[in-house]
Design a protein around this nucleic acid. Structure first.
Lengths: 212, 212
DNA sequence: GTCGCTTCTGGAACGCGTTCCACTTCTCCG
DNA sequence: CGGAGAAGTGGAACGCGTTCCAGAAGCGAC
């Protein structure tokens, strides 16, 4: 009687990882981010990521189901930290800015951050269409974080339309980023258009933030 | 003295093709579309496309710079024909529908078309982030066609805000399609959200179509 | 300790996009 | 028609994501 069932080789859930494993996972993500900013997404190869974080190639695939999964996790992490920066920045302004003004500041700073790290913009765009379920999950989490941040910025928009407004801004952001990164548009045009979208969709809520 | 300069191996522009070459190009696109609907984007390989259109693999690369380029050209072609269908459909309704109503019909029919051809939806999404300049060009053309179609549907929106509205709808469409195709959302939710976006952004123009 | 398990390692191997090459076939000008 | 340059052919070869395998740690239970 020979053992026939293969061991499960799909990545363990993060919650089920030992501290040692969590550290490895973190190293892999860090290595991926570092390599992307150094040499670009296009030139990044899995073998390098493994080597730089001191694990065998096969091991990398026990933490991430695919290159897409790893990259999605990486950009999600970076994007999350960007979001808290942005929310802080907008909150920092104590004046009674309108929701529209605040949101414009928000996306403007966001676009500038991507401008400073164009390779990360490329990364975000290139990973957005991934069909790897694990990557998809990471991207979904990123979208949720986006939603929460946007909600924090537009406190005066009622929940009824708030969802739709958030989707509009999120999709427009992603779309303009894509258009820029793939060379279909200049960065300035992308930023301008995104701000136009924000203004158009938020003008109904011109009243100053009651919480200010 | 040895000849050193390599021959130009990037695809010739379409305008500069002989009829024979145009036919080949068309065959390649047709084969790609057929194969995509038969077996899906993921499983499609360049070798099959070449074989099915009776051309050597190397030749395929003299017509399209990359798989992305071929696929972009293919989906652009299909999408263009879809757009004329949709515009016709909306125009066909002679009643004095509001811009918002017409646009909702437009995107609803559009989403249904993609629902009937889910592999083409996948194709559109998977190609959207391509950085191949030739692919990018094809996608840009597709976006222009989209813009023209949307303009035809919302005749009563003034040009000042019309651009922005078109971008919103375009990005939301692409975004929801992506979310569906990558399994981050159900098709119904995607459609519903897209229609919400359309309605929110077009309600200011509720007056009936003056041309009706 | 040591047995039994999971995990990790190093490295070979596979698949498919892409490139290259030596050769044949077109095409079209004189 | 003849001959030069462009375009196409068939097939080998390369690069990198991904998979697989046999053996070597790592680690908890007893």
């Amino acid at each position: 009687m020979v053992k026939v069932t293969k061991v499960d080789l799909s990545p363990r859930p993060v919650e089920a990882m030992s501290p040692r494993q969590l550290e490895r996972r973190g190293n892999l993500i860090a290595a991926a981010l570092a390599l992307v900013t150094e040499i670009g997404v296009e030139r990044l190869q899995m073998r390098q990521v493994s080597e730089r974080s001191g694990v065998a190639l096969g091991t990398t695939y026990r933490y991430f189901s695919s290159k897409d999964h790893l990259l999605a996790a990486a950009i999600a992490e970076w994007h999350r930290s960007l979001l808290t920066d942005l929310v802080g920045e907008v909150r920092g302004r104590r004046a009674g800015l309108t929701a529209s003004d605040r949101m414009v500041r928000f996306v403007r700073h966001g676009m500038r951050a991507y401008q400073r790290q164009p390779e990360l913009a490329r990364l975000r765009v290139s990973v957005a269409a991934s069909t790897d379920p694990f990557a998809s999950e990471a991207l979904q989490a990123m979208a949720r974080a986006d939603g929460a941040a946007l909600r924090a910025v537009m406190t005066e928009v009622p929940p009824s339309t708030g969802d739709v407004v958030r989707h509009i801004v999120g999709h427009a952001w992603q779309g303009e980023l894509t258009a820029w990164v793939t060379g279909r548009t200049t960065l300035d045009d992308a930023r301008r258009r995104l701000e136009d979208v924000v203004r158009l969709v938020l003008t109904p809520y011109e009243a100053a933030d009651p919480a200010a």
